[in-house]
């Protein structure tokens, strides 16, 4: 395997794995505050799925000859990134709806083509992930539907969540093709099958009618439908804001990383104890066989 290809995959897959794990944080915030038991078990299941997705991805990354601990160390030192979308706060229950619908929707749009990428272990992990994520998007949209058809206050919360998540979701596809550092090479290697702008356009065409169906407004004054192309056209993306969040100046960057590091450090004694216990059991078994 060419070394540059291997390195690119390690970078991409490990960052994808980190995103799944960090992505649990904004949602976990609402598990104990879910409005009903049904919503609560669904959200729990979704967050549990994200942990699983992180694990599939770390495993597939390990097939490239890097240890999981090393990739996690890179996350904690700031050397490796995770998706910037998780650096925004979840202020109300409607945010959980907007995340499932918009954020998972954008993630699915990004991940479906990866099911056919050139590296087998990555593509197999993606197939599993995509299967599970369609539930995530539906549970999100179902929350939005409920709130958009609820009381005036609930409706206001739904619109407010859309206002805050719409643009960050569109930015999840990454910089414009002309400004994307790794795109061209990844396309050549067939890790990436469609360009950032292509996927963003597909997402826009799919999502605008869904927003209208909710009876909510798309927070883009320049949004218009082009009759001749059959596509929606959006206003300018604020890339300066995007790069600021990537560089660590988002609302929750520090909080997220602190939570991840804290969980890892506080879990250290558990990992050590489990290993010590396994060793003790092994020795006991060996002794009883010898006796």
């Amino acid at each position: 395997m060419p070394d540059a290809y291997r390195k690119t995959l390690i970078r991409q897959i490990s960052q994808h794995a980190h995103s799944e794990i960090v992505g649990m944080l904004p949602e976990a915030n609402w598990i104990t505050r879910a409005p009903s038991l049904t919503r609560k078990v669904a959200l729990l299941a979704k967050v549990q799925d994200e942990a699983g997705h992180g694990l599939y991805l770390y495993s597939s990354c390990e097939t490239l000859g890097i240890e999981r601990d090393d990739t996690i160390e890179d996350l904690h030192s700031g050397k490796a990134k995770y998706s910037s979308i998780f650096n925004y706060p979840t202020l109300t229950w409607a945010d959980i709806g907007a995340i499932g619908w918009l954020v998972d929707g954008a993630a699915i749009m990004n991940q479906v083509p990866l099911c056919r990428c050139s590296y087998g272990p990555y593509s197999r992990a993606m197939i599993r992930v995509c299967k599970e994520e369609s539930f995530h998007q539906r549970q999100g949209f179902s929350i939005m539907l409920k709130m958009a058809n609820g009381t005036a206050e609930q409706k206001r919360m739904a619109q407010d969540a859309i206002n805050r998540w719409w643009w960050p979701a569109l930015k999840m596809f990454g910089p414009s093709d002309s400004d994307s550092e790794h795109s061209a090479q990844s396309m050549k290697w067939k890790i990436k099958r469609f360009s950032n702008d292509e996927l963003r356009q597909r997402f826009l065409d799919m999502t605008v009618p869904q927003c209208h169906l909710l009876g909510c407004e798309v927070p883009d004054p320049d949004l218009k439908f082009n009759e001749s192309t059959g596509h929606w056209e959006m206003g300018e993306i604020d890339w300066e804001e995007f790069w600021n969040v990537v560089k660590g100046k988002g609302k929750c960057n520090r909080q997220r990383l602190k939570a991840r590091k804290g969980a890892y450090d506080k879990g250290e004694w558990v990992r050590d104890a489990a290993l010590a216990y396994a060793e003790k059991k092994r020795q006991r078994k060996a002794a009883s066989v010898a006796a």
Binding site: A45, G52, Y56, R68, L275, Y277, K281
Partner: peptide
């Protein structure tokens, strides 16, 4: 199905159940 880290075989089985057979 895939792989995972675990301290011993029993733990690997329990984790495999949670990770690979949730549905």
């Amino acid at each position: 199905s895939g792989s995972l880290h675990a301290a011993d075989a029993e733990m690997a089985l329990e984790m495999a159940r949670d990770v690979y057979t949730r549905r």
